[in-house]
Design a protein around this nucleic acid. Structure first.
Length: 524
DNA sequence: CAGTGAGCGAGCTTCCGCTTGACTT
């Protein structure tokens, strides 16, 4: 029986779509690109309009051979590759190699649900040659740049080295960071920690001496000099001030209350999943992708290579219903939250990375998944649910304590600061809190639980402790922070970030003694 | 005369992005 042949990129996707379309359609996978420039030689005729020579890849040969057999019985051909630059190119190559004699339609969809697939079948379009040209241009530029510049490295640095549009700027980032670290001049400074004898007690940090800001880490330039209008406290002064104020009477100078409000993060896309997988689960980017691939292939999550944070309408409804059921209506955001990718050049061919529907909780899957799979799935589950939950809210209280006393014969005014946030309604934080790279975390904004305080009240002091500190250079990139930076710069794609990490490391392995932070000795 | 070694030439390395198994270790 003659039936339409539908070609998608991923075999797992073919299986799912086949279920929606039934036996009236034959759904197959191209398994990615089927054709490419040969790896040997430039294969671009630079003197004749940059005409490329393509050839089928090893797997492409088999794929095209099989598809050609199926084409003999096909009534129509639906090219259903991803609706992005590379997907359009794959469809174009399929067309070139299959040379179909039956009607050809290009069908596109951005979520894999029955209604989306049926809509796509009923609303086909033609091939978008603008996108095909864009993909080809991208491919040719990468080849020209990579294959022309790499030999310079073989001659001048070492055989086998390589340069490229993505790897060279990646190395540059790492090298620039390392140079910043080498050029960094450490500065020392002291501060004083005041511990109150209130109930509960809290700590406050010295912030002003005679009205001048006391220098903390942020107040030094990378060459070790203090910025303007701050006073750098050295050890002797810190000890003298702490000793002198030990018997001083501190009172509350100001109490400032501000409402605290925090909004959940968008659902995962590839880059954010890799970053959180690194920070929360201590997995490398490639480990995250391997585990996610397994979850995807067995139908637990949606596609894991995506630059989109949007949930399908069906998923949105399921997530909101799940939140309401598990946490109550109070924990649901007032209306559906719509997120959009802030990433430039986002192509958004797929949905966000989320649990597939019907939703199954991590606890329900504990018997089916191994440890890593379960923890990654749980993280995806929590982030997805949290994205449709209410804001967390509360109050942030900032308090200033002050006293005047004589230090070495001079009357001196010292002011200490503390702040604390009380969360009165956890909202999404009940489920998921994003972690931050340690280098981004601020260390001088300690959060404390504060007792009720009124201006003018005398605060008993338990102790004043001088502490020495020194400034530290900017941290080396981790896999997570490098991927974040690359994405901000529009370098690389969801399918390549994990492998970039391997490429820029010596022998593709982490450097020894670098606590898994990335440094590189290449010099592109 | 036989063995050595200088000198020459040819072939190799490489890009990025899309997808999974098929391979070792």
């Amino acid at each position: 029986m003659s039936r339409p042949l539908v070609i998608v990129e991923s075999p797992a996707k073919a299986k799912t779509i086949s279920k929606f379309l039934g036996t009236a359609f034959d759904v197959r996978a191209s398994v990615g690109h089927v054709a490419d420039l040969p790896s040997k030689g430039l294969s671009i005729d630079v003197d004749n309009g940059f005409k490329p020579t393509y050839e089928l890849t090893d797997r492409g040969k088999q794929v095209v051979k099989d598809l050609k057999v199926l084409m003999k019985d096909a009534s129509e051909l639906y090219l259903a590759t991803d609706e992005d630059r590379e997907g359009e190119a794959i469809s174009w190559h399929l067309l070139e190699y299959l040379k179909p004699k039956v009607p050809v339609k290009r069908m596109v969809f951005h979520e894999i649900t029955k209604s989306a697939i049926e809509h796509a079948v009923n609303n086909p379009r033609g091939l978008d040659y603008g996108l095909v040209d864009a993909a080809e241009t991208r491919r040719l530029l990468d080849r020209l740049y990579g294959y022309e510049v790499s030999p310079v490295l073989w001659r001048r640095v070492n055989r086998g080295l390589s340069a490229g549009r993505v790897q060279s700027p990646s190395i540059r980032l790492i090298v620039e960071r390392e140079r910043e670290r080498i050029a960094f001049v450490t500065a020392g400074y002291w501060d004083i920690e005041l511990l109150t004898a209130t109930r509960p007690s809290f700590t406050a940090a010295l912030v002003l001496l005679d009205g001048t800001k006391v220098a903390a880490g942020k107040d030094f330039t990378p060459d070790g000099r203090a910025k303007k209008n701050v006073v750098v406290v050295d050890e002797a002064r810190a000890r003298a001030v702490a000793a002198a104020f030990a018997t001083a009477e501190f009172s509350v100078r100001s109490v400032e209350e501000k409402p605290y409000r925090s909004t959940p993060k968008a659902p995962f896309m590839t880059s954010t999943l890799q970053q959180e997988g690194g920070r929360k689960l201590r997995l490398s980017a490639s480990q995250v992708m391997r585990v996610a691939q397994g979850l995807y292939e067995r139908g637990y999550i949606t596609y894991m290579r995506t630059d989109n944070v949007v949930l399908s309408a069906e998923a949105l409804a399921a997530v909101r219903s799940e939140v309401g059921k598990t946490y109550g209506a109070k924990f649901l955001s007032s209306g559906p939250r719509q997120y959009s990718s802030k990433i430039k050049n986002a192509q958004e061919a797929h949905e966000a990375i989320r649990p597939s529907t019907p939703l199954r909780s991590p606890d329900a899957l504990a018997g089916e998944l191994n440890g890593q799979e379960l923890s990654l799935y749980r993280m995806i589950w929590q982030r997805t649910l949290a994205s449709q939950m209410a804001d967390a809210s509360g109050t942030t209280v900032s308090v200033r304590l002050g006293a005047v006393t004589t230090v070495a014969g001079t009357p001196t005014d010292a002011e200490f600061a503390a702040s604390g946030t009380t969360i009165t309604f956890p909202g999404y934080r009940q489920v998921y809190v994003e972690s931050v790279d340690e280098s981004d975390a601020s260390d001088d904004e300690r959060e404390a639980l504060l007792p009720p305080l009124t201006v003018g009240a005398v605060i008993p002091v338990a102790s004043l402790t001088p502490n020495g500190h020194s400034t530290s250079p900017p941290a080396r990139y981790t896999e997570a922070s490098l991927i974040k930076r690359l994405e901000e710069l529009g370098i690389g794609r969801p399918s390549t970030w994990a492998s970039i990490i391997q490429t820029v490391q010596v022998d593709g392995r982490p450097m020894p003694n670098s606590s898994n932070r990335l440094i590189s000795d290449a010099s592109v």
